[in-house]
Simulated scan of single mutants.
Amino acid sequence: MSDSPVVGVVGADADAVVAAVESAGARATAGTAKRVVEDSDAVVAVGEPALLAVARTGTDAPVLPVAAGPGVRSLPREEVATGVADFVAGDYERVPYPLVDVHVADRTRATALFDLMLVSAEPAQISEYAVERGDDRVARFRADGVVVATPAGSSGYASAAGGPVLTPDTDAVAVVPVAPFETDIDHWVLPPAGLSVSVERDETTVHLLADDRVVGPVEPHEAVHVAPAGSVSLALVAAGRSPFPPA
């Protein structure tokens, strides 16, 4: 970074991060994602909600995630002093993490960094779901829901449901049934372009979720289309957490 860079800090309980930025010789400015990214050379996002808010701004600045989960190799809070010092000094790897847009009825309904999900509004209510890519029917199955996870989100809910963990350079998403009726069922790693998921039966209300937001209900046979939506540039420092479990 340049001399005395301005580092924006977004998120709750960020006093230690602000202090670490200033101790490393940079100027810190704290506030909402929209305000901070306009005036900063780089950004520290503290917590998953802050990282999602920063990603949605479309910023090109490098973003250091703190306590935002292993899927983005985020910096643990106990390593803030060391990790922020490396960030300010430029000692990090800048890696683009892909975003996806979600389209329903030809409208962009949401942008996701981690995942999108179709899931029954009531717990333990099964419906039928379809996965398609272009003209190909990939699968049809009965389950509580289906999650489509980006590389950043693949180590979260999708992994807990049995899906694979993807590295950020993987040009694909993981598609994973949630609590499927059949126990021996596939999971799929597919390019996001041309991908769609849908509800196939009018049995129960199904909601579309994108990251931390409930987008709204989805009607039966209404395709939810996924499309690449650029990326957010994350700064990976040596003290960041790996998305893979320790050996």
Rank of each mutant, 00 (worst) to 15 (best):
V37T: 14
V36C: 10
V54R: 01
A42W: 10
V43H: 08
A45D: 01
K34F: 13
A55T: 06
G47M: 00
T59K: 01
V46H: 08
R56V: 05
A45K: 09
L52S: 07
T29I: 14
V54W: 05
V46T: 01
T59E: 01
G58V: 03
A30C: 09
V54D: 00
P49G: 04
E48S: 07
A50W: 11
V54A: 05
D39S: 15
T59W: 09
S40W: 05
E38A: 15
D41I: 12
D39N: 12
T32A: 09
A50T: 00
A53D: 15
S40N: 01
D39F: 06
G58K: 01
V36S: 03
D41T: 11
D39H: 13
V43P: 02
L51V: 03
S40C: 09
V37C: 06
G31L: 06
A33V: 01
A45T: 07
A33W: 13
P49F: 02
A33R: 05
A42S: 11
G58N: 03
V43Y: 11
V36T: 14
S40D: 07
V37M: 08
A55L: 08
D41N: 14
G58P: 05
P49I: 00
A30V: 07
A53E: 13
V44E: 11
S40A: 15
T32Y: 09
G31R: 11
G47W: 03
L52I: 15
K34E: 15
A30F: 13
V46S: 02
A53T: 00
D41V: 10
D41P: 12
P49K: 03
A30L: 07
L51G: 04
A33F: 13
E38H: 12
R56M: 07
S40T: 04
V37F: 10
E48G: 09
V44H: 12
P49V: 06
T29A: 13
G31P: 04
A28W: 13
T57E: 10
V46W: 11
V44Y: 11
V44N: 04
S40L: 02
P49H: 06
A50D: 05
A53L: 00
A55G: 07
A45G: 07
A33I: 01
A30D: 08
T29N: 03
G31N: 04
V43I: 14
G58M: 08
A50Q: 05
G31H: 12
T59L: 05
A33Y: 12
A42V: 11
V43T: 04
A28S: 15
T57C: 08
A42G: 14
D39A: 13
V43Q: 03
E38C: 06
V54P: 06
K34Y: 13
G58H: 07
G31W: 13
L51Y: 04
T59S: 07
T29R: 14
T32L: 04
A53M: 00
E38G: 14
V36Y: 14
T32R: 12
E38M: 10
T59A: 08
P49Y: 09
R35T: 11
V46Q: 02
G31Y: 13
T32Q: 09
V36Q: 04
G47P: 02
A53R: 01
D41Q: 10
A42E: 04
G58E: 01
V36M: 04
R35S: 15
G58C: 08
